[in-house]
Write a protein that binds this DNA or RNA. Structure first.
Lengths: 189, 189
DNA sequence: CGGTCCATGAGACCAAGTCCCATCACTGGC
DNA sequence: GCCAGTGATGGGACTTGGTCTCATGGACCG
């Protein structure tokens, strides 16, 4: 008989997602989230810096992406490097078992301005960290920023597809497909 | 003798910027901002939906940019269209007399995560509205999104230059210069 | 059996944000 | 000149997010 149920952060996140779906973000209290997870407000704020953050994970994606960029083939161009990193990220993070959760989460994020705002910040930081990682590979600053902007777009397109796809398609092919589409649009635009 | 001093929102914004510079965003209370402007908390929240918003203006930039895109020469390519719109925006909004204020404001934004977060949301919405405006001109969705991403980068680069420039250079030339640089980087990346 | 560690609980406290009602100068009609 | 309506402001109660400090009690180790 254990005293504490395991994985308090995970239970809090699950409870929060449930409640946000049921009553909406602003009609859900932190205390209610904590209670549904069998915990208290104190414990909630010990695991998450604020209410919004309960639906985000602490920089793991950013870190993995930066690693992926660093360890891409040295002769790859900037945008291919980013695509490689996204592909690797998909293998370790956007696995089939996470797809349903990601879809529910994304729907909630889209529906609530406060959460969209947090997501916007994450995306900005992600783009900046991609550019920085490319720069560390020797890509000139502005080229790195261009590739990061386009890479972010590739990511958005692929992620939307991944969530929307009914048959559980893998993330990697979707990335490559999105990359090709963005390149075509770039050439034609 | 008038009862109310004019331009309450402006006075609140000025007071807020002063106080954020002096003591930092999180060490400044909404009540203190209101008092410095000779007003009260009630009035503050009547003019701004929340504390962060006091340093942002209500969608005027987004609106002007969308207009600029709609009224660009019909034969211009997507990215040129965006650059045109940025140029027009510079003439009506980023005027020389606003440069010092913009610089102070930007320094404060950069220094405080909560404000950076709001800025990130504004930027995301701006990019989305650019893409939408381009789409209304007949640009295919993905081409529009690519141009919006690159246009946002052009804007960032030009805006940094504009703020950093000591001799009060006009916004328009900085936009064209940034556009050329981004295009060169795109070709070389 | 006893001490230490660590995740949690409890509750006071402050500031952001909402809401409702009072106030008071200005305006226009009579 | 008086009176009613309008609109920006003030005041204060109230909820909730977020911080902080201290207490609790099981687990692990000797």
């Amino acid at each position: 008989m254990v005293r504490w149920q395991p994985d308090a952060p995970g239970r809090l996140a699950a409870a929060a997602l449930d409640l946000f779906e049921e009553r909406g973000y602003e009609n859900t209290t932190v205390i209610e989230i904590a209670e549904r997870a069998g915990l208290t407000k104190s414990t909630f704020f010990r695991h998450f810096p604020d209410k919004r953050e309960v639906l985000f994970d602490k920089g793991t994606v950013t870190g993995l992406l930066a690693e992926g960029i660093a360890s891409a083939p040295p002769d790859a161009g900037p945008l291919d490097t980013v695509a490689d990193a996204l592909d690797a990220l998909g293998r370790t993070f956007f696995t089939a078992d996470r797809r349903e959760f990601s879809g529910r989460r994304q729907a909630v994020l889209n529906a609530h301005p406060e959460l969209r705002e947090r997501e916007a910040l994450k995306r900005l930081d992600l783009t900046a960290s991609m550019a920085e990682a490319l720069h560390r590979r020797g890509v000139p600053t502005l080229n790195a920023r261009v590739a990061a902007q386009l890479g972010t777009l590739v990511w958005e397109v692929a992620y939307d597809q991944w969530i929307g796809t009914g048959n559980g398609e893998d993330f990697g092919p979707l990335v490559r497909q999105a990359l090709a589409a963005v390149r075509a649009a770039e050439a034609g635009g």
